[in-house]
Design a protein around this nucleic acid. Structure first.
Lengths: 169, 169
DNA sequence: GTCTATACCCGGATAGAC
DNA sequence: GTCTATCCGGGTATAGAC
């Protein structure tokens, strides 16, 4: 059920997530959905949570990979940045749904937000200012890329490198 | 006319900009608007252009102020960052309208996009990677702040400082 | 849990008179 | 350039039968 909603969002963007469309996807009628969710917001909350968890998993995996083999020349922060970018770009619409708009913090499963933040905090030795700066940079890069804001043919990989290298110190 | 639209957006967000609401604001009926604009998208384009120009002006002003008195201890990039943040936060909804969603580049007045980018490019000596990294950082900080994504009571000024100082080198 | 039927609201946009 | 009258589509959500 949430899977279908996720599919809709990923395929056609957050705006395509309507109760009718979701019902169609499931082969049922829209009113039936209200036996499973109180309202549409509840569906969105599920998706936002899902997006956060996936981000967390992507970062945790990168962390672990790096711990096993602190790969040549690269740094942990770079590994996290690469993972963040790759994850976001594999489902840009879900990323937008989960990161744009204010967080429904009270409705989210306990600890998801923190879990998604932990890998970066660890990589920054809990220097909060640094962590927030890196986070803002990464989110900015991703969102500007997704929205097609950078000029045609800009070398974004180089920009990522420049940013992370600078912020690393 | 565009002023009224801007007022609507700033007061209640981009979603509040409807042809009916805009007409109300002007004391006319909705259909009359179509004598002035072909459709709603045209109104939005005007607002996006307006937002970009204002950003450009804010940055240019900061640039000039700095040129006149290269203020004690601070740097040009810091001055631009401060101006960017202040400008965005004085009309957050307009900022979102202008920076979220893909740019209607073809419909925009010639050169606006470039003009908004120039101060930063100059400050970065046209090191494009650096400029893009700074841009992403600044946009990320602003949008995360507007959306209430940072934890309650986070010291964002410190995060700005940390980011800009690092990216400056 | 599913259906049909429907209420309700709101949006963009057009036709045609004045 | 403004109006009235409308069309049309789309959304969320509820009532009540099966």
């Amino acid at each position: 059920m949430v899977d279908a909603a996720r599919g809709l969002v990923e395929k056609s963007g957050p705006a395509a997530l309507t109760m009718r469309a979701l019902a169609d996807e499931l082969g049922i009628k829209a009113p039936s959905l209200y036996k499973h969710f109180p309202d549409k917001a509840a569906v969105e909350v599920e998706l936002i949570a899902l997006g956060l968890v996936e981000t967390a998993q992507a970062l945790e995996a990168a962390e672990e990979r790096y711990a096993r083999s602190p790969s040549g020349g690269s740094t942990l922060l770079t590994a996290l940045a690469d993972a963040y970018r790759a994850d976001a770009l594999t489902h840009p619409h879900l990323y937008c749904l989960a990161t744009e708009g204010p967080l429904p913090r009270h409705a989210l499963p306990e600890g998801v937000e923190e879990r998604a933040a932990m890998p970066l905090l660890r990589a920054c030795d809990f220097d909060m200012d640094k962590a927030r700066a890196v986070w803002a940079f990464a989110h900015g890069m991703v969102i500007l890329e997704i929205r097609g804001r950078f000029p045609e043919g800009a070398d974004l990989t180089a920009a990522w490198r420049a940013g992370i290298e600078a912020l690393e110190r």
